[in-house]
């Protein structure tokens, strides 16, 4: 059972209180009605499913109710960072080089 830091509650709580909410920083296209079938499939279905460092969303559903983002290693299941929703994709703590990625 994971121990998850909620950036809104300011403390780590049992996974029981949380619900996983998929990969983070996948913005809903502004012009969603206009995009191609391929682009829609990419947005709605395709995920990185990263083995290693992954940016993902959680909701503290049985706590403060907030969605937030984390960086987790999907091999060790270690959390490297939790940060509030709306913030840009955060760099991996301790990583020497900034990680590429969009700020969504």
């Amino acid at each position: 059972m994971l121990l998850i830091h909620c950036p809104y509650c300011g403390e780590s709580r049992s996974e029981l209180e949380f619900r996983w909410a998929g990969e983070a920083h996948i913005a809903r296209p502004e012009n969603i009605a206009e995009i191609s079938d391929e682009a829609f499939a990419e947005y709605f279905f395709i995920r990185d499913n990263t083995k290693g460092i992954a940016w993902e969303r959680w909701r503290h559903i049985h706590g403060c109710g907030r969605f937030f983002n984390t960086i987790r290693d999907t091999v060790s299941d270690k959390f490297l960072l939790s940060y509030k929703a709306g913030l840009a994709r955060q760099p991996v703590p301790g990583a020497s080089e900034p990680v590429e990625g969009d700020a969504a």
Binding site: A21, A27, R28, R59, I61, G65, R66, F67, A85
Partner: peptide, 13 residues
């Protein structure tokens, strides 16, 4: 409710 909260907090904050 979860679905609505998801959009409200994430897409339409």
């Amino acid at each position: 409710l979860h679905h609505m909260e998801d959009y409200l907090q994430t897409e339409f904050p």
